[in-house]
Amino acid sequence: MLSDLSPGIKISITRSISTAFDQYMAKILWDETSYNFEDFMNEWRLYITNNSSWYSKVSDEIKSSPEFHQELAVKINEVIEKIFSEAPTSEQIETLDRLQKQLGTDYDYSCKTEAKFYIDYLSEQLKKK
């Protein structure tokens, strides 16, 4: 069912999952012990109904289909796994090392998206100093 959608809609679905995940993880400051799948799903539902272009383009029949929901669950897991599997770049590592030294922090990060969050977060902290 998901595979029957246009390439543009499939890309938009993937992007909406990624964006909502980034927003949710930023909201909990990338504290993995605070991660709650149901909370993330609520964040994603809000995002797709308020900000996503694909949601209104998919028929209510498809959106209410259990098969579609199962395929979306698989897609969500794939997107999240991909996010966690992308290692930080050497530039991100250097930037974070410098920022953490300046601010006296010691945040752990394991993926590119988490590194980006901490670069943005610590840069904001530095501006406030």
Rank of each mutant, 00 (worst) to 15 (best):
K63I: 08
Q100A: 04
V74P: 00
H69M: 12
S6K: 10
E94G: 02
D31R: 07
N50G: 10
V79T: 12
E32K: 15
K27E: 13
I48W: 01
K127R: 11
F117H: 05
S65Q: 02
E67Y: 02
L122H: 03
I62C: 05
E61F: 12
E61I: 15
G104R: 00
Q23L: 15
K116D: 10
T95L: 11
E114S: 03
K82Y: 10
L46R: 14
V74L: 10
P7A: 08
Q92T: 06
T89A: 04
L2F: 13
S56A: 12
S12N: 14
S85E: 10
D108K: 11
E78C: 09
E61Q: 13
F84S: 02
Y55R: 12
T105M: 07
S64E: 12
L122M: 11
S85L: 06
I119H: 05
S110L: 05
T105E: 10
I17W: 02
D106K: 14
M25P: 08
D4H: 12
T95S: 13
L29A: 13
W54H: 14
K57M: 12
E78M: 13
E71Y: 01
F68R: 03
I17Y: 07
S65R: 07
I9Y: 01
A115M: 05
E91T: 13
F84Q: 11
V79M: 08
N51M: 11
V79L: 06
E43R: 11
Q125G: 00
S123H: 02
S85W: 04
K75E: 15
E43F: 15
T89Q: 03
E124V: 09
S123C: 01
T14N: 08
K129A: 03
I62M: 03
H69F: 06
Y109V: 00
K112L: 10
S16D: 13
D120K: 09
D97F: 11
Q92F: 04
I93T: 13
K63P: 04
C111Q: 01
F40Q: 05
E61K: 15
L29M: 11
R45V: 09
E61M: 10
A26W: 00
S64V: 07
S59W: 04
S85R: 08
S64D: 13
S85N: 08
E32S: 09
Y118L: 06
R15A: 15
S52T: 06
C111G: 01
K27L: 13
E91P: 01
T14W: 04
F68A: 02
E91V: 09
E43G: 06
I83Q: 07
D60R: 15
S64C: 05
K63H: 05
S34C: 09
M41I: 15
Y107Q: 02
F68L: 09
I48L: 10
F40L: 07
K10I: 12
F37P: 01
W30P: 05
L99W: 04
E61A: 12
Y118W: 13
D4T: 11
I80F: 08
T33I: 07
M41Y: 14
V74F: 08
E71D: 08
T14L: 03
F68Q: 06
I13P: 07
A115R: 03
S110M: 00
S34R: 15
Q125T: 10
T14Y: 07
V79R: 10
D4Q: 14
E114Q: 15
D97M: 09
W54C: 00
F117W: 03
K75T: 12
I48P: 00
S6H: 05
Y47P: 04
D120Q: 09
K27R: 12
Y118R: 00
Y24F: 12
